[in-house]
Simulated scan of single mutants.
Amino acid sequence: MSSTRYSILALALATLFSASSAISFYIWKKNLIEWDSKMKELQKSLNSALEKCAAERQGRIRAQQALRKAVVAQPQAKSENLDIPSYPMAPIGIVQSCFSTRNGTPRQPLLVPLARACLVFDSTRVPPASLEGLEEYSHCWIIYVFHLNTDLEKLWKHPSKSKFKAKVRVPRLKGGRLGVFATRSPHRPCPIGLTVAKVEAVQGNMLLLSGVDLVDGTPVLDIKPYLPYCDSIEGAVVPNWVMEKKSLYSSPDELKSLVKQALSWDIRSVSQRNRPHNNLLKIGSGDASDNASDLDDSQDGEASGELIYHLILDGMDFSYKIDGNGNVMVKEVHISSAISFGNEKRCNFLMWKDKLK
């Protein structure tokens, strides 16, 4: 009796095991079929995407080839020696700078470290991914357009009618002329500028810069990272007139502190301080010629009616004004015309740096 029970139990277990195995096999086979179907769908989708990318790439190549043919085929300015086609370029972004006008904007980069600007890129042409990795560099080059040149429209629309000057006046040469390609004058055959700035931050399609010498609204054509190993040339030679004058101060910050200390005191003469502010405005606008003899060499007037004072420190001419409340505002800084460059006998900071602490 007991053996019969064991036989029935064993048969039941075998039947149950066979049924579970059959069910497991059925589920596994069903899943395998589903996975195979999904793999085929994914492979089909991938192939479709690859074909689409290849078609888009071929379309871009054909469009670029057509553009080059159209550019070459269009009428070009006649040249005796060269047959040079023109290449249309559009800005990729606009600079939002702290300098609203050309007046007061530094003539060279990094002279004013706190001068900040935000370069906003055209998101339709420059996706944010284009800026990935730029924040790892400390500085970058910026290629831009001198958009405030008065002859810009004539230069581009009617180049044959534009009066390009081969030589320009150089401030450091006291009005002396040099070939435009030996200077950094903004008035060039192709009004394109090159500057370097410090990379402060990258956010989306915006780039925060400092130490800029760009006026607000400047169109930007391209940016490139600054590479010290190839962009900084050891032993580079420049003319004597380019070299900065010898100074008794070790850095621009130290010179700035000197200016603040000097202008914190009212350095005007007694007659200048006692003259009412309204009269100063009249003198500045040329309405009070009878009092013109009271003005000395440290002040002059502007057409705007402001009276501008001058403070010359360490060879730098600081133009400033004082409002009715006695607040001092520096308007412009440039090298004084009284400077004699290349004077080896003039004292400088390097001669005294071991003595100064």
Rank of each mutant, 00 (worst) to 15 (best):
M1N: 15
S2H: 05
S2E: 09
S3W: 00
T15D: 01
A19D: 08
W28M: 06
K29N: 09
L42H: 14
L42W: 12
S45M: 11
S45P: 00
S45C: 08
L46W: 09
S48D: 11
A49G: 01
R60I: 12
I61L: 15
R62W: 04
K78Q: 15
K78D: 14
E80K: 06
G93V: 06
I94H: 07
I94P: 02
Q96D: 05
C98D: 02
T101F: 05
G104M: 03
T105C: 05
A115D: 04
R125S: 11
P128C: 08
P128R: 14
E132T: 00
E135A: 05
Y137I: 03
D151K: 04
K154M: 12
K154A: 08
K157A: 02
K157R: 00
P159D: 01
S160M: 10
S162M: 10
A166L: 13
K167Y: 05
V168L: 14
G176P: 04
G176K: 06
R177I: 12
S185N: 09
P189I: 15
V196S: 03
V199T: 07
E200W: 01
N205I: 07
M206P: 01
L207E: 05
G217H: 04
L221Y: 08
L227E: 04
Y229W: 09
C230D: 02
E234A: 11
G235A: 03
N240T: 13
N240G: 10
K245A: 14
Y249N: 04
D253S: 06
E254W: 01
E254T: 08
R273Q: 07
N274W: 04
R275N: 04
P276F: 13
N278G: 05
I283Q: 08
I283A: 10
D287M: 07
D287T: 01
D290V: 15
N291G: 09
A292E: 00
D296I: 10
G301T: 10
A303T: 15
E306C: 05
Y309D: 03
I322K: 00
G324F: 14
G324A: 15
V330K: 01
S336C: 07
F341T: 02
G342K: 00
N343M: 12
K345T: 14
K345A: 15
D354W: 06
L356F: 13
